[in-house]
């Protein structure tokens, strides 16, 4: 058992500051346990968002010593405890209070993406025939727990605040899952190029690094989406074809 200082950001959108809290860290504890302990011992009104405490719901995203992490999956033994542990809300979104961010923008973005539209069923009983090898990639994308850490770390949102022009890594993964879904018939590539702003991503892979579900966001989702856009809109032969046969 060690007494550790947690330097927690307290405040709301009008401003705030870091405050120090001491609490005992015991074997196996994760950062979220320490936050709860502080809450029960000395800061009853400390705001923190969490649900499952098992890395499955993606609610407790925050920045621990500056790194975007899930508080419930960060073991205290994996961070230096001889100096204060700082915990603050995600920087890419407005703060609500203390460690809680306003992530409503993400829900608005998802609403704008055209939903799943399946082809007609393959079989008389209304079912489809789909093979495992055709869905392995999509299943990787569907592991996403919507913790929005990839959005938080992405410099297009974090540093440049392009929230109006760029949907962020989470929603390229979402779009890729729909576009690569073997049953889907919708076309989202025009939006990917324009409204979703895929061109802003310059493949620094920060999103892949922070993903707690280990989804290879950049290589498996964003790059293939970029390639589809290039194929469709920038292939010189296809452009010529479109020009010649465009509907007048």
């Amino acid at each position: 058992m060690t007494e550790v200082t947690f330097r927690l950001w307290r405040g709301d959108k009008s401003g705030g500051e870091f405050k120090d809290y001491q609490t005992d860290v015991t074997e196996g504890m994760v950062v979220l346990d320490a936050i709860h302990q502080v809450q029960a011992e000395s800061a009853g009104d400390l705001a923190v968002r969490w649900n499952c405490k098992a890395g499955k719901c993606g609610s407790c995203s925050a920045e621990i010593n500056g790194n975007p992490r899930l508080m419930c999956m960060t073991r205290c033994s994996d961070i230096p405890l001889d100096e204060p542990v700082t915990v603050q809300p995600m920087k890419a979104f407005p703060v609500i209070r203390d460690l809680v961010s306003d992530v409503s923008w993400n829900y608005e973005v998802k609403q704008r993406i055209k939903p799943f539209k399946p082809r007609k069923p393959d079989n008389a009983d209304g079912t489809w025939t789909v093979h495992q090898e055709d869905i392995d990639r999509v299943q990787e994308f569907r592991k996403c727990i919507e913790c929005f850490l990839c959005q938080d770390v992405c410099h297009v949102l974090r540093e440049h605040s392009k929230h109006d022009e760029f949907i962020g890594p989470r929603y390229f993964v979402y779009t890729a899952a729909l576009e690569m879904h073997p049953l889907d018939t919708e076309d989202r590539l025009p939006e990917v190029k324009e409204a979703y702003g895929v061109g802003y991503c310059n493949i620094t892979k920060c999103c892949t690094v922070v993903c707690p579900e280990h989804i290879t966001i950049t290589d498996n989702a964003i790059i293939p989406i970029k390639e589809r856009v290039v194929d469709r809109f920038y292939d010189p032969l296809k452009r010529l074809f479109r020009k010649l046969f465009a509907k007048s």
Binding site: P118, D125, T127, T129, Q132, Q139, H181, L183
Partner: peptide, 19 residues
């Protein structure tokens, strides 16, 4: 369950391509 598939759920598959 089949309805969920028609809404986009991606279940693990049998060798012959069923849920």
């Amino acid at each position: 369950v089949n309805e969920l598939e028609s809404w986009g759920a991606v279940f693990d598959r049998t060798k012959d391509g069923r849920i």
